[in-house]
Amino acid sequence: MKSRSRRFAAVDILLILMMALPIAAAIVLKVLTTPPSDGINITGARIFFTIPMPVQDLPITEAQINSWLVLITVFGLCLYLTHGLSVRGGSKRQHAVEWIVEKCQNMVVDSMGEYFAGFAPFITAIIGLSACSSLMSLFGLFPPTSDLNVVAGWAVLVFILITYYKLKAGPLVYLKSLTEPVALLTPINIIGEFANPISMSFRHYGNVLSGTVISVLLAAGLQGLSSMVLGWLPGFLGELSLLQIGIPAVLSVYFDLFSGCLQAYIFAMLTMMYVSGGFPAEEYFARKARKEQKRKQKLEVN
């Protein structure tokens, strides 16, 4: 195990700051830019400024800023976890990160097969990014995943991946797979291709957004209820909304913690299922073998 020199500790502190500062910056930004309002206030992502672009102006919104900050935080977390790895022994941190890596690799191999073992970093990145984005709402920030644009971006990325792996065995196999089981179903199959990213993004965004909307409605409702029931209390006690203490936290455990992590898991699971399910393994390996054979024949002729 590496001895904990002063330099090691300094780098550690820097990395922890790298994790914590983006969150703090987001909170400060939120406090500074939120206009004072009372009552129920459900809005989408706040637009900070727009960059003029040739086709359409590019608005820089809260969702984008927050997701950049999440990226920095996740990056810092990764650097912190992998800081000071050693071959022998190892710290608690190293055991934790080894456990995570092993779990993710096992999960990917279990659900996608050996051929896709290289997908583990990508899937882990999706889970980490999605979970950390959804957990932003624990700090009272705008979770980037409750904006359709952010999640739709990921879904488009996954859609490109799926199509790439479907095209691996040649375009003819791909076109033929669209006409199965009968040629009559081709239009439905084509719609089904494009429905995948839409349903994936809607599922993730709808779950996170519904949690946000319900928490806001509940907070407003509890405020009204407590001013109605406990408004007769003297002095400042009557103005405090006492019912708001504690009750929203219980729902927050479900809507923020459980739902956010579950959606990250489901998004990653669906990615794995679609990619490995759409991959025509038999045709691909047959084609590969045929190519190999042709190459050998050519070599022999030469």
Binding site: S199, F202, R203, G206, N207, L209, I266
Partner: peptide, 20 residues
């Protein structure tokens, strides 16, 4: 089961998106 629930939820979420 969690996977299946998430997929069964899709139609409800479409309705939610339309309502929003």
């Amino acid at each position: 089961m969690l996977m299946g629930c998430a997929i069964a939820e899709t139609t409800g979420l479409y309705a939610l998106v339309i309502a929003i």
